[in-house]
């Protein structure tokens, strides 16, 4: 049997090309096989955050059940109207890249330090007996180390907070990252956003809120050692609940609802 000369040019070419083809074929096949599961995971992960921000996971028992009662829609933030765009292909990062789909914010308007604001936003509405029960809005703003991305859920009166949940942030573990602490998140439920005159008054204060304080419903306990993160949370609520954020949309919803 002739011994294979494994260092011949022919063999080098053969092994090199053969191995590359084989490996790429295997990877492609498996990647395609797994793609649908992976995409499903990404969607499910997002839905979990959305549903839990509104505290609906326990109400409906599962994320799937809750999502079947939630309608996803794209709105025009300036006009505050629902627009007829499919929400499935909407991606915030893509909107902020595409020319004409975002606007730059001037320094005095940019309360939440986000620099750019998208034209269209993707919101979620939970219906109960054909009435709006919860409105779930995507919010974001600068914390200490980076932008906090989250969902603010508001009850059907468009004033009471149902919950707040951040799905992406870079805050310090143990300090700023305590915004993920279930105990702190639970403090938000039942707080009011707007004062009688329509002013956004909900904020995170330093220290603990006094039970008998006049502003009890407008204040949330601060996290110790995380003043800047807490200011960031206050700012992003002030921005997104204001006229540059979702105020127009909320006003429109109120008119339809009444």
């Amino acid at each position: 049997m002739p011994k294979l000369n494994k260092d011949s040019t022919l063999n080098i070419t053969f092994v090199g090309i053969g191995l590359c083809l084989l490996c790429s074929a295997i990877i492609s096949i498996i990647a395609i096989q797994l793609r649908s599961i992976q995409e499903n995971n990404v969607v499910l992960d997002m839905q979990k955050k959305i549903v839990s921000s509104a505290g609906l996971t326990t109400v409906y028992g599962s994320v799937e059940n809750a999502m079947s009662n939630i309608k996803t829609m794209i709105i025009d933030l300036d006009k505050g109207e629902i627009v007829d765009i499919s929400p499935d292909s909407y991606e915030l990062a893509k909107e902020l890249r595409e020319e004409g789909k975002y606007k730059f914010l001037s320094a005095e308007n940019d309360i939440a330090s986000i620099k750019k604001r998208e034209k269209f936003s993707k919101v979620y509405i939970e219906y109960k007996d054909d009435k709006i029960n919860t409105l779930i809005l995507p919010v974001r703003g600068y914390g200490l180390w980076g932008i906090l991305y989250g969902y603010l859920a508001i009850e059907g009166d468009f004033n009471t907070v149902a919950g707040l949940e951040f799905y992406e942030h870079k805050e310090t573990p143990g300090l700023g990252a305590e915004i993920d602490n279930p105990k702190w998140k639970a403090l938000w439920k039942g707080k009011k956003i707007y004062q009688e005159d329509g002013q956004v008054s909900l904020k995170v204060i330093k220290g603990s809120v006094l039970e008998n304080s006049d502003d009890f419903v407008y204040e949330v306990d601060g996290l110790s050692g995380a003043t800047l993160t807490c200011n960031g949370v206050t700012n992003l609520i002030a921005y997104w609940m204001g006229s540059d954020g979702f105020l127009n949309f909320i006003n429109n919803l109120k008119e339809i609802d009444v």
């Binding site: 294979l4 494994k6 260092d7 080098i12 092994v15 090199g16 490996c23 295997i26 498996i30």
Partner: peptide, 26 residues
Amino acid sequence: NITPSNIRIIVQMTIISSLVILVDQA
């Protein structure tokens, strides 16, 4: 036994990185 010794590192890397991609995808 068929790996040419002068491209053996590349061959090894190809196999290793393919496996890592698979693990990552899974």
